[in-house]
Every structure is written in structure tokens, then in C-alpha cells.
Design a protein around this nucleic acid. Structure first.
Lengths: 146, 146
DNA sequence: TATTGTTATACTCTATAACTATA
DNA sequence: TATAGTTATAGAGTATAACAATA
């Protein structure tokens, strides 16, 4: 008797496997973020802005995997908390340009070492080469046109 | 002038990279699920139950990356829709045993081909070997103790 | 007409604590 | 005392559509 529907095992399902792997990594990251009362989403926005400099919201939404309506609310809150600043684009007045503030950068700086420790703990167990391969393959997967 | 806080680029951040990769894969999966009015979470529950047979809720929660309070609500809805059935464990009456119904299996069967097409489209672009490596590495990462 | 971003709304999930029943 | 699961609750994100301003 077949127990299941002959689907690929969940361990070989990309969506499920990516989620489980992410949950493993996020567990300690969440502990860190809880300690500074910052949501995962806001952390991603800070990371993206730190990397890209001043950018419009659509770019942030894409890079941080957030929908624009969610981002609108998140940025309003982050602006009120002084972590980002916003200004209208003078060339195209539909656009809002957003950048990280010194205070936002400070949050990243203060948590960089914890963040690195988590990464190194994973690297120590998986091996540097495997972890680099994984990151390469994840970049490849992101580039796929589905 | 340094633009950023000297953090690893977001493309080399495991949490962000795993999320972006997952969003890429989930885009067409979400289209599929929207078509049958099933949430991602319910889909994962069906996949897990199909694979594991009759199991208690804590196991489902762990395998499908859901918290027990979320799962309680989700299973209540799925039971009402006839996709899963529940019964009390006769040995340990604290436990509830859950299994997928024929109707639940039918949902998986009806969407197996779409699911496979998505996978094959990714495989065609990444290459079988790379995709297999990625799944192997994701399993390794899940096993890390953080 | 198309695009950027906001607002509105309904729904769902998350997270935590308190609780019940059972072990 | 500890565990499995439920309930309650607050908060936040998701998703869609409708809208305003601008191009």
C-alpha cells in the first residue's frame, strides 16, 4: 500500500527546504532582533539601505521581499524612530528616495558582531566551502526566471 | 567614503538569500495555490501529512514550520473542509493524531503536475546537478545546531 | 495612459501567555 | 511537575483594490 501521493519528499521540495533552512538560521537572529525590538522586516530594510545608499521604495520592496503597502507602513514607523529619512525625488516627483540615517547604521554596527558569530557558528559546522557553494547556488536560484 | 557598515553584502547573507530564493520559487507556487484557494501553510500541512501518515500536531508544527497556536486554527479549518481528520490518541489522551483524508490527497494529486512543472522549469535553467547540490546543502544547513 | 506610492480593508500568521486535560 | 494542545489577545505582515499625484 502506498502511503503517499508519490510526490517528492518534503526534504527535496525547494519551497519547504528553503523555509526549513531559513528557520534554522533565523532562530538565533530572531533572538538578537527581539533583544533590540526590531522586526525581521525592518532589519532587512536597514541591510538593504546600508548596501544600496539612497534608493526609491520600489527597489527596497524588491530587495527586501516586501510589498509596497507593507513597506509604506514600515518606513513610516522607521522614519518616526529616526532609522531612515525620506525625501521627494526632485526630477520625478512621484518617487520617494529613502536612505538609512546614522542612527540606523548604528543599529547595524551594534549588532554586527552577533550577526557574524551566528554566521561563523554555521560555517564551523558546515564548512566554509559548502557554505560558499550554498550561497552561490542560492544566487543562481534567485536568477531563475519562473 | 564608505557607503555602508562593512557588513557582508545582502547577497551573501544567509537569511536574506534564503528568503529571496524562496520568493523566486514561491511566485508560481502561489499562483497555483491562489487558484485552489489554499494558503501556503495549508499546502505544507498537506505535504507533511501525506509524507508522514498519521502524526501528532507537534510533529506537524515542526515539519511545516508553524507554531502550535497557528496550527490549531489551521487544522480546525482544514478539518471543516474535509482535508484532514483528527482523533485522540488512545494511549496518551493529551495527544491528537492527525491524518490526511482522501480529499486532502486529491488536492495534492490534482496539483502534482503543476508542482512538477515548476520544479522542472527551475531544473532546466539551473541544471540537475546544481539543483541536487542545492537541496543537499539545504539539508545540511537544516541540521546545523545554532 | 502608465507609474509611484498611499490608503483602505479583510484576512492570516506570529508571538506570548494563560489555561485545560492528561501524564 | 511536565507535556500536548487550546484559547485569548495584541501585533504585524499579506494581498488586493481603489486612489492621488505625477510622468
Amino acid at each position: 500500500m502506498t502511503k503517499n501521493s508519490d510526490l517528492k519528499s518534503t526534504a527535496r521540495s525547494l519551497p519547504i527546504s528553503l523555509l526549513r533552512a531559513r528557520e534554522t538560521v533565523m532562530a538565533p537572529v530572531r533572538d538578537m532582533l527581539n533583544g533590540i525590538h526590531l522586526s525581521e522586516q525592518k532589519w532587512r530594510v536597514l541591510r538593504v539601505l546600508d548596501e544600496l545608499g539612497e534608493v526609491e521604495q520600489s527597489i527596497i520592496a524588491k530587495e527586501a521581499c516586501l510589498l509596497l503597502p507593507s513597506l509604506t507602513r514600515i518606513l513610516r514607523s522607521m522614519e518616526a524612530d529616526g532609522q531612515v529619512s525620506r525625501r521627494q525625488d526632485s526630477q520625478d516627483k512621484r518617487r520617494t528616495l529613502v536612505q538609512i540615517t546614522e542612527q540606523g547604521r548604528q543599529i547595524l554596527a551594534e549588532n554586527m558582531s552577533t550577526s557574524q558569530e551566528i554566521y561563523q557558528k554555521i560555517e564551523a559546522q558546515m564548512g566554509r566551502e559548502k557554505l560558499e557553494s550554498l550561497l552561490d547556488l542560492l544566487e543562481d536560484l534567485q536568477a531563475v526566471r519562473v
